[in-house]
Simulated scan of single mutants.
Amino acid sequence: MRADARRNRELIVTTALDLFAEHGARVSMEEIARAAGLGVGTLYRHFPDRQALLEEIAVDTLQRLMTFSRAAAAEETPRWQVLRLVVEHCAGLPLGLAKTLSSTPISHPELPRLERDLNALFEQLAKGAQEEGTLREDIPPSEVIALLNVAICRPGARADDYLTTVILDGLRR
């Protein structure tokens, strides 16, 4: 891929990430092209349809989240604090895209694996927090992750907004 084509592709993905994080998946391809300062034709040369762009963004987002979460989990920090760090990191990410895509046929081979790996890591963190006594033990780790998904997998989610705060307070032992 030529250097200018690679820059355009990165610009499209970065711009779309920002727009999706702020407005959710309803942002149009035309809005993305306009915000990136590119023509719609350039956008469609890189991504043949909206689904391909959404999948690319979801994979990029989940890969970055996995890198951050693994690094945080490797620290000698109480598991509850690691969970909180991950929630704070997730705020503002377009994680709702992965949830939106889970109801449609996926063509990107990395997406299902990344979702499984992230959920497994987060369940380990939840179980560790339960074992250290900082997270309620009456909620299975998989349900803890489902609750956290409600908080962070929505447009405009913030670590300090009322929904995230209530869910975290309710999970804390």
Rank of each mutant, 00 (worst) to 15 (best):
M1C: 12
M1R: 12
M1G: 15
R2Y: 12
D4H: 11
D4P: 04
A5D: 10
R9G: 11
L11P: 05
L11F: 02
I12Y: 04
T15P: 02
T15R: 03
A16S: 09
L19K: 07
L19Q: 09
A21H: 05
H23K: 14
H23N: 12
H23C: 05
A25K: 07
A25E: 14
M29S: 11
E30C: 04
E31N: 09
E31Y: 01
I32D: 04
I32M: 11
A33F: 09
A33W: 11
R34Y: 10
A35E: 14
L38T: 05
L38R: 08
G39S: 15
V40L: 13
V40C: 05
Y44F: 14
R45Q: 07
P48Q: 01
P48T: 07
D49W: 03
D49N: 15
R50W: 08
Q51V: 02
L53P: 12
L53W: 06
L54N: 03
E55C: 07
E55D: 13
E56P: 06
E56L: 00
E56S: 12
I57G: 02
D60R: 15
Q63Y: 05
R64T: 03
R64K: 13
M66L: 14
M66F: 06
F68K: 02
A71N: 12
A71D: 14
A72M: 13
A72W: 10
A73S: 14
E75M: 08
E76T: 13
T77L: 14
P78Q: 03
P78D: 12
P78V: 08
R79E: 06
W80C: 04
W80M: 08
L83R: 01
L85S: 15
V86E: 09
V86I: 15
V87M: 08
A91G: 15
G92W: 04
L93H: 12
P94K: 05
P94E: 06
G96P: 00
G96A: 11
L97G: 06
K99S: 13
T100H: 14
L101C: 00
L101A: 00
S103R: 12
T104Q: 15
T104G: 04
I106Y: 07
H108K: 01
P109F: 00
L111R: 10
R113K: 14
R113N: 12
L114Y: 05
D117W: 08
L118H: 04
N119P: 00
N119D: 15
N119V: 07
N119E: 14
A120I: 08
A120V: 11
F122Q: 06
Q124P: 00
Q124K: 13
L125K: 10
L125E: 05
K127L: 15
K127G: 09
G128H: 01
A129M: 00
Q130I: 00
G133I: 03
T134L: 09
T134H: 07
R136C: 01
R136H: 01
E137F: 05
E137N: 09
D138T: 07
I139R: 08
P140V: 13
P141H: 10
I145C: 11
L147I: 08
L147S: 11
N149Y: 10
N149R: 14
A151C: 04
I152K: 02
I152M: 09
R154H: 06
P155K: 13
P155M: 05
G156V: 11
G156T: 12
G156W: 10
A159P: 02
D160W: 01
T164Q: 02
T165W: 03
T165H: 06
V166C: 03
I167M: 03
D169H: 08
D169V: 00
D169C: 04
G170M: 02
R172G: 02
R172K: 13
R173D: 08
